[in-house]
Write a protein that binds this DNA or RNA. Structure first.
Lengths: 185, 185
DNA sequence: ACCTGAACACCGTTCAAGT
DNA sequence: ACCTGAACACCGTTCAAGT
């Protein structure tokens, strides 16, 4: 059975995807969930808290630990996880922007989810290094480089800053592959 | 002499830097500029247009073509430009987020500024390739990889997703250097 | 051309009640 | 425990005037 809280989060997510945080008005969220315009205050301390709940949920769902499958090699597992990250960002731009936006107030849950995700990324990098498929060196730093490319490529793509035509044509996924190829030597 | 329009942009920028787009209220902007709460409408079609004016100005100021200096080698020139980009983002997070946010309405000026910036980046990459300091290949695609790292590293750093302690400690600038080192072989 | 002041439709948030 | 309805202070935007 779906609780009012779950329904509020679901409706808020729909509004977020459609028009960004500004489109998430507690009045409309309440209306769609079939409650009054300030019933949300009984479940969340305010709009920020409601948005944080969405961000924490998505950060957990999108963690590399979430969508694990068997791959031929450690590098292929890493590549698949990076591709999943980029695909998720391109598919849900507003959630992507939300998660990596400025956070104030109660960030404990978000922080925990981010830390967990980082650990999963490092694990993937270490496995690829152990298989001699990535250069040696501090895995945390190499992880940072890989996620920076995935993150940056996704954000640039979202905002139309990657060329969409001509010989320079590259999508965000291509850039991740380029980096992995360069790293493999 | 400073026009009302210039003063409005300046005050709006101050508010933006301090608290993001939500803190930029036309009422407060007008008040600080010494005019009524809707005088801004005589200079901009609305809040979006005022924010777009800030974004276009900053995009032009921050272009790699803007801060050019003589460097020992083409790679050092490229590295310096990437470092300038990252430093600017970390220094002005709200403007960085604004420029790479969702744009609706009159985006012509912004688009022109972005295209100009891309051309300047490509020039730097081509020079480094000609000096055999970067691998051959489509310069536009290599440029995309480099700017993706700079952009992504800056955004992750801004949101506290780069580790601040321990052996994995790396700031956004370090990641740019790491990529350039890997590319040089 | 540039600006003002009133007005309108919103929104987040608070509060006093209701069941 | 969960919800409602009125109310308050705000905000973007429009409009009719003013100089």
């Amino acid at each position: 059975m779906e609780s009012t809280r779950d329904r509020l989060i679901a409706e808020a997510t729909t509004l977020l995807d459609a028009g960004g945080p500004a489109a998430v008005t507690l009045r409309e969220v309440g209306k769609r969930a079939g409650v009054s315009h300030n019933a949300p205050y009984k479940h969340f301390s305010g709009k920020q808290d409601l948005l944080a709940a969405i961000a924490a949920r998505d950060l957990r769902q999108q963690s590399p630990a979430a969508g694990r499958r068997r791959r031929a090699t450690p590098t292929e597992a890493l590549r698949a996880a990076l591709h999943r990250y980029v695909a998720w960002a391109v598919r849900h731009p507003q959630r992507f922007k939300l998660i990596f936006g400025a956070w104030s107030g109660d960030v404990a849950e978000l922080y925990a989810a981010a830390t967990e995700a980082r650990a999963a990324w490092i694990e993937l990098v270490v496995a690829a290094q152990d298989a001699d498929e990535l250069p040696a060196g501090d895995p945390e730093r190499l992880m940072a480089l890989l996620t920076a490319v995935a993150h940056g490529a996704a954000d640039l793509a979202l905002n139309g800053h990657l060329s969409r035509s001509g010989k320079g044509r590259a999508n965000a996924q291509d850039l991740v592959d380029d980096l992995l190829d360069y790293l493999r030597g």
